[in-house]
Amino acid sequence: MDKKGGERLDVLEEEDRARFEAVVLPHLDAAFNLARWLLRSRADAEDVAQDALLRAFRAFGTYRAGNARAWLLQIVRNACFTWLQQHHKDENFSEFNEERMPQVSENPERLAIASSNRQQLTRALEALPASFREILVLRELEGCSYKEISEITSRPIGTVMSSLARARQQLRSALAQPPAKEVRRAL
């Protein structure tokens, strides 16, 4: 059952493990959720999150008391971006054309309907570049403060705010796209 070649935390020092479990384990869901949205796949997210957790354990000695969630999420997001690069899914590194989805197409009613639909929201979120997915997930799903996001993504706080502004605009535009196109693509 060990797809990871049997490397587990239970073979490690009991005391370290207990501390790791108490400090880091509470954020396992956060780690998985971030990976899932960055990689857009539960299966890949599980693999990458597992590797990231093991890496976090090995690096646990360098962790000083502080924000454990931010510390862990930083490791997870770095692992995810590395994975995206290695698997040539680094759409984030290509220039994203922000004019592609013009703001004028925003129809408040359609936006309201689309955003009430989990599937459409998922599609819209997944259509965004990884760095926008990341910042929206951290802010809206994980409830991170700008300071935490800045810590996790190694970006200045001012950049966090302007990135969120653009990410939200992109999400609105993605949601306002007529759904017909998505249906065709899905077929």
Binding site: F32, L121, L125, L136, E140
Partner: peptide, 10 residues
């Protein structure tokens, strides 16, 4: 976003 249960648990 918060209401539509996008959060996916481990």
């Amino acid at each position: 976003m918060r209401d539509s249960m996008l959060y996916e648990r481990a």
